[in-house]
Design a protein around this nucleic acid. Structure first.
Lengths: 191, 191, 191, 191
DNA sequence: AAGTAACCGAGACGGTACGTCGTGTCTTCAC
DNA sequence: GTGAAGACACGACGTACCGTCTCGGTTACTT
């Protein structure tokens, strides 16, 4: 995200911008957040944003990342030894998260990614991939203890578990719910 | 989509606008298609667009619909009597469609829908719902002939089948493929 | 100054812009008048200014012109029959005018003309030439009644009369004054 | 123009700046010369300019001065004993100079002076006053040898001689010329 | 000879204005 | 009374410079 000399960069400005970007996107949605509004809120010149980021989506994504880097917000997966229970816990957490304003911002980023491959890649690298990996790790551990077939296709499993959630979220056919999670689990992980 | 007197409406203008909208969106993507560019390309006044549609997404959606109303483009589902084979045929068709420019426009509409509930509803009514219904019909028929459990949750089934495709399409983790279709079918419809 | 269709032009906007431009230039000087401040004060979009004028100098010049088109503000010259007395009256009027805020604006335009030939030409056409012609007319009439040699070089005369005033005004060596006017007249029009 | 310790000042930088300023102003005109462009061209930090000068006009003025300090570029006046001939020589020199690019820069400074009294004063002190004094000296010598009335108003004379030249130069009514010089001399210094 | 104060190049910073683009509304004229 | 044409007020865009402010790195005076 950078070209000029990272060394001389003002951390004050950087943080003020990320904070403002997060706030604006949460309050008004990504699409009506503007570089000008971020700059004004952060008390910063527009050029300072253009210098270090290439689009408002890039700023907001980094803001989201910063936010996610807080305490227990990581991509970690529960592991009690019971795979089905752990998936249920985690997926219910996702359902809960999908109803928060920060998730609306994330949705906005996914929307922006449809028109800009750079954002698509960034969203993947920063948000999706780490969570998918955490999930795959958990599944692999389940495989080792025999809770899952040794030859199960784990990538497919991830898509079967989360695909239906994103389907509802993005196509807005109906709201995600715990019931959906339970149904998916029952279908995908038969006892 | 109409308020003024539909009777006096110029069909020439309407068609020119839809054609222009479809072309612009295909060439430049929905997000850099503008009402002005559609009007200019259609040789029409901007007001004529604003009079009959409420956003560029509405125009483009109608253009897509018009396009889809051509010959065999409908939402119909194959029915050879073999459910698995029919699903396979249809889903491979979806994979093929997802690689066309018109589908990029559709993706743009889904993106726009994240920020505008009206668009979300319209996209659902016009594109998604008819196809889901066609699919549900097919599944119901399979149920009647005993190819599917009588108490299977058909709505869930639809989400399990198509969720993974949209997951890849919209999150752009990797390209959709026939292999994915086969894997999903194998997992969701065990022999 | 126009390219789009003059017919559809809004006279309300035009007048509001000229009024605002005149006021801004009078209060803050031409060089710290901006297109944005004119637009804001006139309650007008910037584009409306850019559409009809090619620089802020052009706007302000037209504003000055409009202002000058008021009642007795014309370029007319006194004619009592006594050339020396009439020149004295007129030139003292110029001295008086040179101390007004509107003249500061005019000075700003002359300054702008040094870097832009279009403005130079416009300033000449709109402000200088008419006044020079009025002066030449008066001198010609004096020639006809024998108050001036028949072969006197009238163009030269104009430059000898007004050159010293503009010299002081623009080079700011010292303020213009009635005393200067009298001295110039005495030297250039010997009894 | 200085406040910090003149002793430690880098002469390399100073000269590079003046050279760059002169070149930029000659090539692009004073009004589109910027402090940044001077700094870049001189290979110097902006601060080094701001430290020693208070505006780009000040830099360019000093550059012009440096340029004028070359060989015979001074403000000296010819003195052959024949006042009319000497004025003619000198004024024709001015006409010639007025057509050079350096004079365009000087015109730019006069323009800038209309909006900034500091520049006005500086231009006067550095350029105009020395030349006026040289002229007055010459006129005074002519007075002493009886080529000019003892009670002639020499300041007025200067304005009558040079006013018409600056009038044409700055109002751009028509180009200055040797013919104008001759006519002015004939009118102001009658045989 | 070491220490230290300053100027130096570089360039990031908060700002202001630029000139352009697209929005959605409003006005004018032709059919 | 629709429709094309396009002017209008508005808001954001991304860029250019402004003048100020660090940041090392050389000088060149001081002790």
């Amino acid at each position: 995200m950078s070209t000029p000399s990272e060394a001389r960069r003002s951390q004050d400005s950087r943080l003020a911008i990320l904070e403002a970007a997060f706030a604006e996107a949460s309050e008004k949605g990504l699409h009506s957040t503007t570089i000008e509004s971020i700059a004004a809120r952060a008390g910063v010149g527009k050029q300072t944003i253009y210098r270090w980021w290439k689009s408002k989506a890039a700023v907001v994504l980094e803001a989201l990342e910063e936010e996610a880097a807080r305490p227990g917000r990581g991509a970690s997966f529960p592991d009690t030894g019971d795979l089905r229970a752990d998936l249920r816990t985690q997926m219910r957490g996702v359902v809960r998260a999908m109803r928060t304003p920060a998730f609306a911002t994330y949705r906005g980023l996914i929307a922006a990614a449809q028109a800009d491959p750079e954002i698509a890649r960034a969203v993947n690298d920063v948000i999706i991939a780490p969570r998918v990996h955490a999930c795959l790790d958990r599944l692999r551990r389940a495989q080792q203890v025999g809770q899952l077939d040794g030859d199960a296709d784990l990538d497919l499993l991830v898509e079967l578990l989360y695909g239906p959630l994103y389907y509802r979220l993005l196509l807005q056919t109906e709201p995600v719910s715990n019931a959906q999670v339970d149904a998916v689990l029952a279908a995908v992980l038969p006892a």
